[in-house]
Design a binder for these strands. Structure first.
Lengths: 134, 134
DNA sequence: AAAAAATGTTACAAGCATGTCCAATATCAT
DNA sequence: ATGATATTGGACATGCTTGTAACATTTTTT
């Protein structure tokens, strides 16, 4: 079943925010919350998960915060989403019930995973609105 | 948020079963249940939804059943899934919070909808396992 | 007319997801 | 050392989803 909810989308937003921290300096939840409009409490949970999946590292205490554990071009969106929601698409036993449907859903899974295999760093490159030069 | 759960997958399975009814004769829940391994009770709900979305028609009473309301090559998987789960992918306000992310998710939505715009009739053509001739 | 065979509708239990909140722990600054 | 500042972990409320089950309604058969 495909599963991308707000949680995964928020995670991508948080990671995207982190990827913009100059020189990958630590960012605090407070800052990320201000940038993404995600509630402080919910970010706590999300970042905790991202940490468990080794996508970010943290330092505690005053002046602490989170930062990317790897450069943004070594992280793909799929990882981020799956860190929060588990396997993006998993077809279980019996839901196909025919060979045709099993093959179909397996193919879908493949295509979906491809679709989400974009690097975090490519977000800006690919989706930045066109800007005129002077 | 992307949302395809067992319900949508079951719906595709049910529709696929119906598309194999010779001459589009009515099939009963009992038969569909036997073919797809989906419980009778749950199929009732699912078929009821499919009917509300005008994807199937039904006749009640003894010798009743369900059949496709249109030929299988006029029905796409996306419709079937969305009949059960609502819009396949909808990005709401604020979850992007930046232009880049909004553009990204909008693009994803587009690509996903394309991915699921396969005709019901194409399932067999595209995913039938290869068979050797004699 | 009555029984049998289907769909149609609704209520409900159990589990999962979303999001809030707080206490515990760790770190920095004075 | 002490207080301020952050993360960490978990408890918890609320609502949605999944799936079951029972009952109502409609149609056919005898």
């Amino acid at each position: 079943m495909v599963n991308i909810s707000t949680k995964g989308i928020y995670a991508v937003a948080a990671m995207h925010a982190l990827s913009h921290s100059p020189n990958n300096r630590s960012m605090q939840i407070k800052e990320i919350s201000a940038m993404t409009q995600i509630s402080h409490g919910y970010l706590e949970q999300i970042l905790s998960q991202l940490k468990k999946s080794s996508l970010v590292t943290s330092t505690r205490g005053a002046k602490g915060g989170y930062k990317l554990s790897r450069p943004a071009n070594k992280i793909i969106i799929l990882e981020v989403v799956e860190a929060l929601e588990g396997e993006l698409f998993s077809v279980h036993e019996n839901v196909g019930a025919t060979v045709v449907l099993e093959a179909f859903w397996a193919d879908m899974q493949d295509k979906l995973r491809n679709l989400f295999s974009l690097k975090l760093s490519e977000l800006d490159q690919a989706y930045q609105p066109f800007c005129y030069d002077i």
